[in-house]
Amino acid sequence: MDKAVAKPLVDIQNLTFSRGERVIYDDMSMQFARGKVTAIMGPSGIGKTTLLRLIGGQLKPDAGHIWFEDQDIPTLGRRDLYQARKKMSMLFQSGALFSDMTVFDNVAFPIREHTKLPEEIIRMMVLMKLESVGLRGARDLMPAELSGGMARRAALARAIALDPQLIMYDEPFAGQDPISMGVIVRLIRSLNDALGLTSIVVSHDVNEVMSIADYVYVVAERRVIGHGTPEQLRQHESPLVQQFLQGLADGPVPFHFKAADYAQELMELKA
């Protein structure tokens, strides 16, 4: 039993992935411990969302293993992959609510698709999930009638509808006002602890992530540049990690996009 707890739920080993010519990840490894909130941080455009899609099996890596429980996701056939996906869920940045269904039907969707439960029980389950994100009163609204924060919470209720083992959050704090940001920060932590989930949070909101994560990976330049608990990271010696955590405009990640010599280019204009 102890051994099973110690073993990470998701174990990424030597992952290499590229899009066309562009290498996104080069021989990267990371572990996500059971029952913990693990965060992946990094500058925009380094493929954090891509990593979640790799774990979900929507993309296939060029090399490496992605172990989820005892299954290597990239090697699974369609049927096994769909079975594995029932144990994980993902909260998309946009919420990805089905726009032609009410909030209630959205949350009921995975339950109706994957179980043969009678409608009364489904109703009870949905109301409980909606209550836990504070949207029980909004069940008859359509997604278009929700604010951004509410939509994300509704999507969260849907993501936990089938009590998954793993939940992946794609930029859960992006574009939220301070209040709904606070609500979502608290929800991620409390749902993780109450439901015994394992959470992966992909984000570049440093303060929010540092406040809820048990463990943090900082990813940049195709690999993990630093990892540890939030306290350990604050002490991290890498200038790149420090630049990112403190939000400095210039540093190892240059402020200027690669360009020709400034003075020379201005002179050219004259000519």
């Binding site: 996906r85 869920s89 946009s94 990805a96 609510l97 726009s99 969707f109 698709e113």
Partner: peptide, 14 residues
């Protein structure tokens, strides 16, 4: 574009 198809796929619905 609104990731509804991806979301469905992640919910193990084809």
């Amino acid at each position: 574009a609104t990731e509804q198809l991806s979301g469905m796929e992640m919910m193990a619905v084809d």
